[in-house]
Write a protein that binds this DNA or RNA. Structure first.
Lengths: 287, 287
DNA sequence: GCACTGCAATACCCGGCAGGTATCACGGAG
DNA sequence: CTCCGTGATACCTGCCGGGTATTGCAGTGC
């Protein structure tokens, strides 16, 4: 019936994520009692119990899990509305809106493709200004959802295209990047199994948001670190073929025969109606 | 930065849709002055002018258009959060949530497919209860977006799958349904051009939400009316092949050679994580 | 030219509710 | 049994969301 207030959603997601009223209140910059009360009111308003209070902290009920998911989506939509409106209002030229589009790209994405896209679009008659926003590993989905970006280059199957409209731009195979002096570097082709258990070359693990997958390989934060570790003969990595563009002399690239192809998509929020965005997409699909 | 409050979005969308403060206030059940003030505050908060006040009513600026789009999406997300949470909280069995899924189907959809799907799913071990929600023409998208439904059967290319995850279920051709005693009923095949300008049989026009496309044909509100009008020799209609299931004796069906095939998809909100939903989709794709 | 009308903006007031502080209730650990 | 950590309750206060009355202003009809 009635839509939940943004404030209620903010409060609930904080509590649901912290599973602790005190910490959640701190995170929200408020005291604990009003937060407790607000959650109770929310539960009464919905006629549903969201939290299991078992006198030893709290846990989410089934309904609570649902609200956490849906609430995050709604909050993202609300912040996206604010951000995109602010961006659109920056400068209205007379007669037409001087739009600026924010394009999120993974740092490791194909430079070549991006360059071609930007050049081709800049040549369009009604080209808007494009701000390229480098984003961390798999962060583009989040950026599209909460309005920090208007459009993104994403890599299937690594990125999920769920909830966005998208067009395929480029399909490429994957390559293993290993030290030039490693025995396997002489091979003309490798399989995933080959590179996943080289005893002296564990696969590197990306660490993001402070968390990282467990494993034997070294933890890395950016592409330069990775390139260095490979050059030093300490690790091996798997990348789309376009990564050849940034290989060092100490690196060797070997195609992976059985790796799934990587498809670069251009993706945007499904409800988008911006003319500038439409132009960019048209340009992109014609590349 | 900060998410917009649901209330602000409600107010703004009302004003943006009515383009009249007085009517908008009435629709919102409040007085006009506080509404004016709220919009001004919103504009100050965003640092953007949303409305063009030209002393003769108001109109949207570019930023206003953006906010109308984004705000609608955010409002839908917020009401969806409320609805789905309420539904999930109805009855938590001990140990597992006794979920109920709401499936939106167009009234004219394939009964056969729906029946098979429901039967197959009911046979699953952990089947949730499925509530079938009949929805008007092309209304399923809206229902998925604002949480009235959890999953829907949609017909491409009539429904837009934008913003949802989906799986193809069934592809079928289209047929023209005409009076059995009409000359064209004897043909084994027809083209779209054939049926679109039969002098004595204008195509019927669906009227929904009080509005309807202009044209010569009779205005209809439901399928029974349509069936009757066809039987009376007053109109002709185009449907997917599965419509043969509800034909009357007075009807004749002729395949349309050049009509685009209709693809029935099962679609659901992209962020959905419900186990019950996953089970239903798994069942559906195996049909 | 002048009164009239329709619409948004301003001025001012009031009540409710969001948020704060102090305290309680309760269960676990020592 | 006491103390600590937790969430809930009690009570207060100030802000702000909303209401009524009024003004300002641009068309419009006479």
């Amino acid at each position: 019936m009635d839509a939940l207030e943004t404030r209620e959603l903010r409060y609930f997601t904080a509590v649901a994520e912290e599973l602790h009223f005190g910490r959640a209140a701190e995170r929200l910059g408020m005291a604990q009692p009003p937060l407790s009360r607000a959650i109770q009111q929310l539960e009464r308003r919905l006629g549903v119990s969201l939290l299991e209070r078992d006198r030893r902290g709290i846990s989410l009920t089934g309904a609570g899990e649902v609200l956490l998911d849906e609430g995050r989506a709604a909050l993202d939509a609300a912040t996206a509305a604010a951000r995109r409106t602010r961006r659109a209002g920056g400068a209205d030229g007379p007669g037409g809106s001087r739009n600026r589009l924010v394009l999120a790209v993974k740092a490791a994405a194909s430079h070549e493709l991006l360059q071609k896209l930007l050049d081709a679009y800049a040549a369009e008659p009604d080209a808007a200004e494009i701000e390229v926003l480098p984003s961390g590993t798999c962060e583009q989905e989040e950026m599209l959802r909460d309005g920090r970006a208007d459009v993104a280059l994403m890599h299937a199957p690594f990125n999920s295209l769920a909830g966005f409209d998208s067009e395929e731009l480029l399909t490429e195979g994957q390559i293993a990047i290993l030290p030039a002096d490693h025995p396997l570097a002489a091979r003309t082709t490798l399989s995933l199994a080959d590179v996943s258990d080289i005893p002296d070359l564990p696969l590197a693990r990306w660490s993001r948001h402070g968390t990282s997958a467990p494993g034997p390989g070294p933890e890395i934060h950016d592409q330069t670190q990775l390139a260095q570790l490979i050059a030093l003969g300490r690790t091996v990595a798997v990348f789309p073929e376009s990564a050849r563009a940034w290989l060092w002399a100490e690196h060797a690239a070997v195609p992976l025969a059985d790796a799934p192809p990587v498809v670069t998509h251009i993706a945007w929020p499904a409800h988008s109606r911006s003319l500038a965005l439409a132009g960019l997409i048209r340009t992109a699909t014609r590349l």
